[in-house]
Design a protein around this nucleic acid. Structure first.
Lengths: 189, 189, 189, 189
DNA sequence: AATGAATGAGACTTCATTCAT
DNA sequence: GATGAATGAAGTCTCATTCAT
């Protein structure tokens, strides 16, 4: 924790956990400070304001989500398998990092979303590229890749949320059904 | 505005608009009062607290969403057409009532969601019944109807959100593509 | 309750009960209205303000206390017995009407006490006269009657309070001891 | 004022003065802050709530009253003189610290009194011990010491209150009379 | 860099009082 | 006379932010 970068990360992670449980407004800076084990004033050495902290946290988790997508993709595999792997990889990431999913959803549905424009990177950009390639290579129907991105990401987050809440039992067979429905609708033939 | 029920509705609608633009915490009771044209104290004749107001508003919009689903369905039509009509009806409703969509998403992704259990009605219940019937009647694949509900509602809200934000141009052809993808994946044959 | 005087009394009694349990500030006019079974506005037909209500209630209970003192006195009895009867009568009254005692003590120890000057009657006036007579008739030591009044009333309220709170067991023998101590100290010989 | 303990004390003393003049509800936190020369929010670093502040203030003045009793007692003196000294010491303390007396009386006669059970110390405990010793050593009549405590404390506060209000002229001779009455009633012989 | 006491604007809420019915 | 919805001033309390140490 002596490393400044480490301390900044510690503050971000603490905020992430708290926002999951209590929301933006249920998370005072004092609570972040306490969870991170630093003084309230210290946070302001790393972030200009609470809003800045929230926005930087969004960029931080966006990076982790994008890395997840890339780490699960393998261009040498058949495209159908790539699609299944990417879907399941991102689903698994959200399922096991519910605080990321909850924060992401809170952020994009809140007034903060106006800052998304300014974000240096986007989950959707990388997924768009993935689908563009699938279309170009003749595996997917020729629709706007943005549409496939939205449908896919929406299905992942929706499924992850019901799974996390435990309202529906989602096992491996159900996942196969869900991805299969999407694939069948999106694929050529 | 003379009718007490009207005034309560007026407060709910005012809150809905403000939450769309400013979020829960960006919407002080004083702003609700001002927009509704009542004194701050008056709100407390109709709602015990801000939390109560928020939760009642959730039930209020849930009712309007459910009515939308029912009003667009017509059991005498072919199931495929019913699916398209319900999807487009709900999409259209969200698209033209963005404050409902934004509030709904903020609510379910916030700590308030723990009060959903206690809600008297649910959007998902009515969609579940719709899909159960499609499965029973042999039009849809035999997967859990809850899964079809989640996928369908997720696709509607995701599409509505990108449409509202204007990032992607979504016209009638694109809608047909999107619903077509889902239908092709979900339908038998 | 149809009689206006009855309704005024009803409001006073309702206030008395509530103040015992919740104090002045813990007793909103709305609670008084509810307990009295009238509308909030109705109270203002009988009392100008909450302060007026509180002060009139003080006068109201002062009257009941004074009547208690007089009703227990009997000038034909020996003075010692009169003293014992008055003491026990007032003690018994407070003990069985704790709301009167609590209200009285709250009132005299609060900033309202500045209105006592304007009160039309006083408990102390009648007790002063009682003791003056005892002094004049040679039964009590020649000290200022106000002093005897204060000592006596203080002993009654103090004893009543500990009795009501149940912290000390006060039975008939203890009462005899207490009054005996006072009498022995105050009486001649 | 640099010492944190000093600032806490400053807030307590400010509250004490204000409550004397305006009562609990006549003393907003903003007034306490102003009198103490701190910001409103600062009070909440030292006390969880207004109720906590009031209760801690009760404990604070209880401590000062108990110290007064002890500082005026001297076990080497004859018991009668000890009694006179303790009575006059406490009387003098209340007389010159009317805010303590007024606060104490307001507190014990208010709904706050339910918190007295939880108080770490009590005036009555120390007086009880004093009287128990007087009984054991054969100077006082064999009645429950709690009774003597109640009578004595009641006589002190009653006398102090009339003195403070200036309604009766209480000089040294009158004090002697009052304590004499009590002593004569309580003492053996 | 780090601390955390202090600030004070502003949030939620209460409630004495009014007044149209 | 009676009602009770409506008012809005004022109260308690929170919390993002600052700054002397």
């Amino acid at each position: 924790m002596e490393n400044p970068a480490e301390k900044k990360k510690l503050i971000l992670e603490s905020t992430l956990e708290l926002v999951k449980d209590f929301g933006f407004h249920g998370t005072p800076m004092s609570a972040v400070a306490k969870k991170a084990g630093v003084a309230a004033g210290t946070i302001y050495h790393y972030f200009d304001s609470k809003d800045t902290l929230i926005c930087e946290l969004f960029n931080y988790i966006t990076g982790s989500i994008i890395r997840c997508v890339f780490s699960n993709d393998d261009e040498s595999l058949p495209f159908k398998e790539r699609f299944f792997r990417v879907w399941k990889g991102l689903f698994s990431f959200y399922r096991h990092n519910p605080s990321v999913l909850v924060f992401f959803e809170q952020f994009v549905n809140s007034p903060y979303n106006k800052y998304i424009e300014a974000a240096p990177q986007s989950i959707f950009t990388s997924l768009n590229a993935f689908f563009q390639q699938g279309i170009t290579d003749g595996y997917l129907q020729p629709v706007a890749p943005e549409i496939l991105t939205v449908l896919t990401h929406g299905s992942i987050t929706s499924t992850a949320k019901v799974t996390i809440r435990g309202k529906i039992e989602i096992g491996e067979p159900e996942l196969q059904q869900i991805i299969g429905i999407l694939w069948q609708g999106m694929a050529i033939k």
